[in-house]
Each structure stands twice: as structure tokens, then as C-alpha cells.
Amino acid sequence: MSVLVYTENWDGKFKKLSFELVSYAGKLAEMLGTTVTAVSIGSVDQAELQKLGNYGAQKILHVTGPNLDKLDNQVFSSMIVQAASKEDASVVLLSNNNSGKAIAPRISVKLNAGLVSAVIKLPVSLNPFTVVKKVFSGKAFTNVVIKTDTRVLTLSQNSFELIETGNKATIENFNPEIDTGLFKTSVKDVEKVTGKILLTDAEIVVSGGRGMKSPDNWGPIEELADILGAATACSRPVSDEGWRPHGEHTGQTGKIIAPDLYIACGISGAIQHLAGISSSKYIVAINTDKDAPIFEAADYGIVGDALKVLPELIEAVKEVKSS
């Protein structure tokens, strides 16, 4: 038996979410009395792979080969399923990010395994195997029982703490059999966001709504984000108006995020907006309307003009940072 965790890499590097995932796998393996095997697809150097050991992987299966730098859902799921069989995995764990969402369902069908996506914590019971996830866009939680002996889980980003074990993993080259006819996805063009903190990865997010009045007023939002090491976000009308790029829109129909801190400037706090941000650990709201619904979701609030408050906030953060 084992817990198998698929650790995606980005140009040969892992991210915080990879380590969250392995930390979760480690605790889950402890509950199940078993070990953690990580599977990594594509070229990653030994030192980087060994980082997974530090967060609790005992064994790492490393798959390399041509055409593995771009995701093909059929190919990747087939390789992970072969790793799961080899390791006799009772749980296969992936991140609930773009690629995890794309391949976990396929893995679950191949393994005849029940799947629960976006779990937020360790199972609350092993028998029956019961996990917790959010439903109704964050308006409720539910316990889901998986009835099969093999289970596939995807973990919500930023919902589990990092646990360093100082462990050293054994690294094994793994060569699953792949029918070349299976490669059907061809990638014609790639557009990368560079040099910016990704919204889904960010621990702090500074976000603006229609209350910011004009795209020309985003300077202070960007400056605050810059000094906090934060990503920038916005409400839907702001991206619909073309004030900000679409990738920044958070909410039910945009990105769903769970940073440690979300600073909402001139955002009313509509239920569809909250659906994307209510998992944030702390929410700060700056709004001129003391009755705006955002204050019901917020931990700290300032009733005031964001255009006046933001410059002061920037100064105050600078002071604290330099002291």
C-alpha cells in the first residue's frame, strides 16, 4: 500500500503547492500506516526532486522522455495510473489546479476509484473514508464518503500547512509504457505570464473593484502589491470593462483563491465575488459605504475613499517594513 502523489513541475521547478501536497500526503500516509511515493513527469534535477523528500516523500518515481513538457491529459493520466499500480496506491493525490482538474477524473475512471475534488483537510474518518470539501461556491461544507478501496483526491490550494520532515527520498527512474498514438494534444503557441506573482499562488492579494473609478487609478494598487510581494486582482465588472486583464478577475466565474490576506478596495462584496475569495484567511475591506456587504465578510474594515486611504496605507506598510 502507499499514498501516491503527483507533483507537477514548472520548467523543472516545484512550487509551494507541490510541497503542500506532499506534506498532506505525509500526514495521510501516517493515518493509513503507509508511505508516500511522489511521481514527477519531465526533467527535474536531483536536488529539486530531493526537496520532495524534505516534505515527506519516501520514494520518487521520475519519468523523463520526449514530449513530456506539455500536458496531454491521456498520456499523463496513463503514466500516473501505471505508477499507482506499481506502488499499490490506496490513495492518489493531486493538486486542484488546472492540470490536477484535467487529469484526476481520468485517473479515477481508469482505477475504478471514487474521486473527490478540492478537499480542504485530512479525512475526518478512514472507515468509511470521508473527506470534507466546500460546495455551493463556499456557502456550505460537505462530508463526502468514498465507497471504493482506491481513492483519488485533489487538494485545494493553500489549505494545508508545509511540514518539513528532513527526510531523504530514494529516487527511481520510472519508464511507464506509453503508446505513442496516445499523444493527441498539440500545442501551437504558448503565452506565459512572466515576472509576476501568480494570483493562484499568492499569499497576499490586493484587489480593486468598480469603486476605484477608472483604470488610471490602479497605480496605488500595484504599488501596494509590489511592496507586499502580493498579486493584483479585480472584480468581474472591472475585467469586463477591460480596465484589468481577465486573468485577474476573482469570484464564482473567475479565479477562486485562498490567500492569507485579501485586500478589497472599492469592491461591494457581491455573493458571486465572495465565492472566489471567502476562503482567504484575512480579508481587509476599504469602501465608502459602511453598509457594503463586503464588511460582513471582512475581518478589518475602513470606511473611506480608497483613493485617499491607499497612499496612506502604502506609506504605513513601507514604514513597518523598514523598521
Binding site: 479515477s108 475504478n112 476509484a113 471514487g114 474521486l115 473527490v116 468509511p128 470521508t130 460546495v135 463556499g138 456557502k139 456550505a140 461544507f141 460537505t142 462530508n143 463526502v144 464518503v145 468514498i146 465507497k147 471504493t148 481587509v284 475591506a285 464588511f295 460582513e296 465578510a297 471582512a298 475581518d299 478589518y300 474594515g301 475602513i302 470606511v303 473611506g304 475613499d305 485617499k308 486611504v309 496612506e312 496605507l313 504605513a316 506598510v317 514604514e319 513597518v320
Partner: peptide, 28 residues
């Protein structure tokens, strides 16, 4: 293969701490 065993509503959030716009430093 899976079954919903029950639902729960999130705990009500503690009241928002209000900070005067004249004292932004306090927020930080």
C-alpha cells in the same frame, strides 16, 4: 462511487474590526 454524508454551514464570521480612515497605521 461517492456519497454526500451531510452538510454543514460555515461558522458565522466574527464582526469586522473597524478602523478609522484617519488611522491607517493601526490597520498595518
Amino acid at each position: 462511487r461517492t456519497e454526500y454524508a451531510g452538510f454543514e454551514l460555515p461558522a458565522p464570521k466574527a464582526a469586522c474590526k473597524m478602523i478609522s480612515p484617519d488611522n491607517v497605521r493601526e490597520l498595518v
